[in-house]
Structures are given as structure tokens and as C-alpha cells.
Design a protein around this nucleic acid. Structure first.
Lengths: 191, 191
DNA sequence: CTCTGACCTTGATATATATCAAGGGTTTTT
DNA sequence: AAAAACCCTTGATATATATCAAGGTCAGAG
């Protein structure tokens, strides 16, 4: 139940057994089914979610009704709307289940408890968010001024798993191109 | 010399006087002139820079020779290529001075020293990077699927300072549109 | 004081990609 | 087993934006 979380912590920091037990006890396991919402636009994001197993994605819907995928999360990744979680403002994002999943969730109070009590926990989060920032910046770099073809070919290099676990129209939205364009790019690739 | 840095720390955490002195002593003041490079593509980013006063920007140059502005930094902001700084890999980004500036720089060793010795310093960095992540995600959301006009009008709402301190062709690059398009958008706005 | 380079604007044209539309698999639901 | 929903593809057309080209302003350098 906590294998992935344990692995993730120990990839970045060392925790004593007591510290690990304390961490564990502040998380709440939560099972969810495909197509359920972990967070809906307008609600406040009350929990950080760690994905033990499964797949989720977050997206916004713009004024014209178009969906924009912000990110995906798979086994061993974190998912939340940090903006809403830390400010308490209503979320403009939705988070939806892409597969039946096992999550470990953590509310703000418990998160702050762990930050206070376990320095290594704060270090872990600093490193995790640092890495997420670097990845996101890479994504901005790719999104800005690459052609649809280049975006696609970088994606399959950098995140091939996406193509197997995610419907193509969501990948298209993630890349910022239309589903039709992505389809044509793929067709031209396989020739 | 250290006013902005002091302010920035104390906006997010509390430091004792000794802690503040220790922090301060690990930074090195560095003056630089407009058009100088803080970091050049191919070099490793050896220092985090805090901007006491001035303006910088980071950018990449793609295979077609097009420049893509990643971000700007003004008084009280941080600037570095985190990817290169933490991995030691050569940078694909350049960081260039937009104005004569006063920087406070910090190498990896000193940064790690401070992380070890001062928990509040680690907390400060966690919060700073968390905020940067939220802002960057907002930018992705804007870049993906907004028209040039919408991008521009959001920018002047969210970061009006950019328009005063940054040449328009760099703003255009930051938004991912051509200078000509930005110019036309602005013309249509002022009518 | 004039020259030069940096920066911005405007016009004409080209093009990548969106949009509209239809059809055909596949999977899920009833 | 049929119906419905979802997902992907392909074609035709439209459009936002890039690109190419030229001219103008302004500040700093010589």
C-alpha cells in the first residue's frame, strides 16, 4: 500500500523508522475509479495526492469551452493544484482519474505537521518541487516555438509512457495542438 | 547591498540575527553591466543569483537560430539555470543582463552549507520554488491555446512591469509570438 | 553633429495549424 | 446482442500568425 511512497522518499532523503511511521500515519489511502474527479473547478484543493498506482490528469477549461491538459500523473508521482492548496482559493483546474487508482492523500494540516516535525520531509518536498520546476520549464521551452511535429517527437523521447496510458486527444491537448493535427503528425511519422 | 535579500527572506521565514549573518556571508556581491552574460550556453551554471537591483533574462536558441526567452528577473527575484546548477550538466540556456545590475551570488557548496545549517533557509527555498512553480504553471496554461491578443492582455494585467523594462521583441519571444504580431496586437489595443 | 545599430511599425504574402465534416473502429452500457 | 459513447483518422477549407521586406525613430558612439 505504501511501497511507492516509501521508494520515493528514500530516493531523495533518509528517514528513520520512526519518521517513516509518522509520515505514513499522516496519509490517508483513497481508492478512486476511472472518470471520477479528485478535484472540481470551483472547489478548493484540500489534499495533496500521491499516486501509489494508477493515472490522473489535471486540466482547465477556457472561455470557449476548450480543454487544456496541464499535466498527467502516474505511479509514484504527486498530483494537486498547489495554487489552490496553499492559498485556499477555489481551483480553476479539474483533476480527473484516467484509470482506477490507489492514492495516498494528505491535507494541509498534516502536511504542515510533517514539515515542522521532520526536516527530511521538508527537504524531500523541496527536491520534488525543484525537479518538477525544472521539468515544467523544459516543457515551456518545448511548447514555445516548436512545430507540432517537433513537440510530438520530443514527447515520445522524453515521456514515451504517455503514449500508452493516455488517449491521444489528451496528449494533443497537453502539447497544445488539435487532435487532428496530432493524428496527421503520427501518420507522417509512421511512413 | 543586502536589503532586497533581507526583505525576501523575512517575507517567508524568520531568521535569527546569527542565521542572517551566516546567510549573508555565503553570498558574493557581483556587479554586472548591460549585455554581459551571467551564463553562456555550454557552460555549467555554478551559481544561484539573487537580483538586488537590475534586470536579467534567460533564453535558449533553437536549431533554426530562433531565440526563446524563458524568463525575466528583476529586483528581488532569483535567477539561475537550476537544471544545470543541480546536475552539473552544461547549460542550454543563456542568461544575459538587461540592465546594469547588482547581484548576490551563491555557489552550490555554500548553498548546501546553508541548507544543512539553517532549516529556515531550506524552508525559504521550498516556498520560493513552490511559488515559482505555480507561476510557471500559470504561464503554461496561458501559452497553451490563447490567441496572441489574449496572451498580451493577460501579460499586461499580470506583469505590467515587463512592458516598461523589457524591449518588445523580448516580450514577444517570452509570449511565443513574433515581434511583428505583438506590434500589431498593441496597435489594435490602443485604438 | 552625424553615423550606426537597436528597436518598432506597417504592408504583402506564405504557411502551419485549426476548424468543420464525415466515417469507421472499439469499448462500454443497457 | 444491440445501442451508445468514445476515440481516431482523413479530407476540405479557413484563419491566425509567421515570414519577408522596407522604412522610421531614437540613443549612444565616434
Amino acid at each position: 500500500m505504501f511501497e511507492q511512497l516509501y521508494k520515493s522518499f528514500h530516493q531523495h532523503v533518509s528517514l528513520t523508522n520512526e519518521e517513516w511511521e509518522l509520515c505514513k500515519n499522516n496519509f490517508r489511502p483513497k481508492r478512486m475509479l476511472k472518470r471520477q474527479f479528485l478535484l472540481q473547478e470551483g472547489d478548493v484543493c484540500r489534499e495533496l495526492a500521491f499516486v501509489e498506482k494508477g493515472a490522473l490528469y489535471s486540466y482547465s477549461v477556457d472561455s470557449k469551452g476548450n480543454q487544456h491538459v496541464i499535466r498527467f500523473a502516474f505511479d509514484g508521482w504527486w498530483m494537486a493544484n498547489l495554487q489552490s492548496f496553499f492559498t485556499g482559493d477555489p481551483s480553476r483546474l479539474n483533476i480527473e482519474l484516467l484509470e482506477d487508482s490507489e492514492l495516498l492523500v494528505l491535507d494541509l494540516k498534516n502536511h504542515e505537521t510533517l514539515l515542522e516535525k521532520i526536516p527530511a520531509y521538508e527537504r524531500y518536498h523541496r527536491i520534488i518541487i525543484q525537479n518538477a520546476y525544472v521539468a515544467l520549464q523544459q516543457r515551456v521551452e518545448n511548447a514555445l516555438g516548436l512545430t507540432a511535429e517537433e513537440k510530438y517527437s520530443r514527447l515520445i523521447k522524453q515521456s514515451p509512457e504517455f503514449m500508452n496510458r493516455v488517449p491521444l486527444h489528451l496528449v494533443a491537448s497537453y502539447l497544445g495542438v488539435s487532435p487532428e493535427t496530432l493524428s496527421r503528425v503520427r501518420a507522417s511519422f509512421s511512413r
